[in-house]
Nucleic acid binder design. Sequence first.
DNA 1: GCATTGACTTGGG
DNA 2: GCCCAAGCCAATG
Length: 118
Amino acid sequence: MKPAAPAAPEPRNFFQDVHEVVRLVPSGRVTTYGAIAHYLGARHGARTVGYAMMAAHTADQYVPAHRVLNRLGHLTGRLHYATPFAMQEALEAEGIRVEEDRVLDFSKLFWDPSVELA
DNA sequence: GCATTGACTTGGG
DNA sequence: GCCCAAGCCAATG
């Protein structure tokens, strides 16, 4: 019989893996695409992680993508939200200070899954 | 099957 | 600290 339902627009397990790691990010903390990629093996490349985040918009469960930033702590994905302020407000709602589209004390708030989940 | 694009990262100027 | 170029993987046309 058929191995799977090709009609299902769901991507590979890799997307679910990325979404799961993002959900594990505690409130008030942030992580980066590179950290997630490294936790998953770093073979897929940070770009693929970012691509998975774009799919997070269509994920079954909610994914706190606002806690995922680039290595500089910039809110790179804010333009992908319904409103460009949604991501910043979501971060500030968790006690994270955001200034000029970048997270303050990013080094302190940085949450590395390859270390915290070790 | 090749070329383009994308929520990235690193290195050099 | 910021900008440009190269490398990387996956999806789309």
